[in-house]
Design a protein around this nucleic acid. Sequence first.
DNA 1: CATGAATGAGCTTTCATTCAT
DNA 2: AATGAATGAAAGCTCATTCAT
Lengths: 211, 211, 211, 211
Amino acid sequence: MAAGTGHRRGSDTKAEIRSVAMELFTEKGYEATSLREIAERLGVTKAALYYHFTSKEDIVVSLFAEHLATFDELIAWARTQTPGPQLLTQAIDRMIDMASERGSRMVRFALANQRVIKDLHPGHQSVHERMNTLFEALTGPGASVEEALRIRMALLSVNFTYFAAQGLDASDAEVTAAARSIAHLLNPVTAEASAAAAPVTPPVAEAPAVG
Amino acid sequence: MAAGTGHRRGSDTKAEIRSVAMELFTEKGYEATSLREIAERLGVTKAALYYHFTSKEDIVVSLFAEHLATFDELIAWARTQTPGPQLLTQAIDRMIDMASERGSRMVRFALANQRVIKDLHPGHQSVHERMNTLFEALTGPGASVEEALRIRMALLSVNFTYFAAQGLDASDAEVTAAARSIAHLLNPVTAEASAAAAPVTPPVAEAPAVG
Amino acid sequence: MAAGTGHRRGSDTKAEIRSVAMELFTEKGYEATSLREIAERLGVTKAALYYHFTSKEDIVVSLFAEHLATFDELIAWARTQTPGPQLLTQAIDRMIDMASERGSRMVRFALANQRVIKDLHPGHQSVHERMNTLFEALTGPGASVEEALRIRMALLSVNFTYFAAQGLDASDAEVTAAARSIAHLLNPVTAEASAAAAPVTPPVAEAPAVG
Amino acid sequence: MAAGTGHRRGSDTKAEIRSVAMELFTEKGYEATSLREIAERLGVTKAALYYHFTSKEDIVVSLFAEHLATFDELIAWARTQTPGPQLLTQAIDRMIDMASERGSRMVRFALANQRVIKDLHPGHQSVHERMNTLFEALTGPGASVEEALRIRMALLSVNFTYFAAQGLDASDAEVTAAARSIAHLLNPVTAEASAAAAPVTPPVAEAPAVG
DNA sequence: CATGAATGAGCTTTCATTCAT
DNA sequence: AATGAATGAAAGCTCATTCAT
């Protein structure tokens, strides 16, 4: 029969929730993070979270949505292009750009929460289905298993490189740069050309002809 | 009342628990798998699990232990070797061999449970610490960030390639083979040599002499 | 900015709340109906409900009040009458009339929410106390348990008949008519007289003389 | 990391849970009774309830099941009989017998929890469907609405009479007896015969001829 | 070698209610 | 006349863990 005090904080609680959730989900994982923890860190009650989000899952969906939008654009763009060697190279670069623009936050988040993300179906399509759509748009029909895997690895290289960089003293920029050069090493198209020349530095410059 | 074990399950309940846990931890993750589930699948009570393991964590430790042993051997071996280009190449091959021998089970398990594994400290050293030990043994002191990352990516390529292969119709052998060729592509040492030659097919055969 | 109410809903939000609450309380019961639901159906916030009512209970009190008023009139009237056979017969008819005038809405509502209603004490007297007051006014002091129960059943027959009619394809008018005839069958006074005559069809018409 | 004491109470906790739940569900209703309350009354934790029942609903199902079994027998029996005037009379008596055997507990319970009971579908059929099955077995195809309702009311008379008896100082036996006589008054078959005779006293004895 | 019975802590979620604006 | 933002309490439920038998 008694109840709370209502309204208090002036600014943007919803944004703060997202921010704290992002941090905790990345640090400890979605499943291991409780709503109590998020609320406590914010000096708010659990019920307040439910004013802004309909469920715990809703928070994670909301966090992932912005990333997904950019990703969906990439897919849409890829579909409009005519398949060919250049497309793949461009797609890889776009993928890395996506990550470097938003900084490493989202990559780390996605890495730490694959499982939940795998279960989400925002916009009637799972992330895996989208991924496969992209792969298919880039991979010709007659690709070998190895070729297909190299393309996949190239596209996912940012994620993996960030994972591998754990414990290494390197800036986000350095990691992203390494991811880019790795991606192009894996790219079956550029690999042959650039291989003989500059294996370590990113093949940003013109590809020198091979003897 | 007659002679015999007096219990219905033949012998190796402990092994069965490990087997079921392996399956479920890989499928749904450690945190999302409850002891109830494991027990139910085995037709045993939860309490029975506590006869064989002291805690839930104990199960995961036990599962990871065998993998860790092989890995520790790899580290020990690497430390005895004199650093140099060949060491790295051999280490990569050993790493892939480890995975292909045990089959993909352990790789998938480790992939699905990085977080718990990260928190384990079996033998007074975390997996990450061991990983870094290995990296340091293989990477010379003056290595650039990019070089370091390529080495790490090369060593972890089996894991990542299995991840990337999700949704692709490929056998374990095919994935492992692709991982091997990817690893060697990333290897700063072999990359220069093999690049001009056989970028796609695995360099299993003898290394062609370099001009 | 122009003249007018300045708000979108014409006027009688309070009435709309009552109407929606009536519907939901009847359909799902008081306890199982949340204020959120009521508010949502109305396109209003929960807080708005508190502008018009002081509590959830206040809503149910308000809904039941109109029914109670009519009922209190019946009690008051009964008390002014001299006890006797005719009084009971008239009281039963008034009881049924009450229901048929307001339609079945209130009967169904009361049926679905006995428990809350039992806990209400509007006007310093619970519904049960009022009921007993009425029963006492109608039942002579020397009545047997069975006689008392038949009178009670007769007075409550509308409610019970509506309950029993669930799943039967019958109009409100038909149910009310059946309730009336059942009530009079149970009435110890009229029973003897009408019994020999028209047991099934309602004794709406004049009672044909017996023998 | 700390945990409970395990095993303590020697006897039949499950039965005690059922007993306490029966009491509370009847007194305050299913929805208004919390598992915490049940547990507290028993000096047990909520989790203990979940050892014995899979859910709150499971408790109510379990409580209602015994009643339902008897009821299903009645339906099964009714279906084997050839329809006719006697069948109805016998069915009514069986219905009342059911209640008087088990005492009033179940009747009061059912009365207080219609809503939950309505939502249960034990054995792939709701209580309402069963009720209708019985009604159809007893009511001829050409029955009028009023006739149908009188039969229904007759069969449900125990329930309703117990409800009506609230606040009246009467023993279970007296209430049951009254319910029986009321049921037979409503029975279209016996009504005609007994009407002329003994409307108030139960028609168990022979009907004395009227002057 | 294993079960039966239980615990305590915690989880996600919902509810009625409040109050400054 | 009504909303936006929040609260405190409680609900149903699950989990890892314990221990006498």
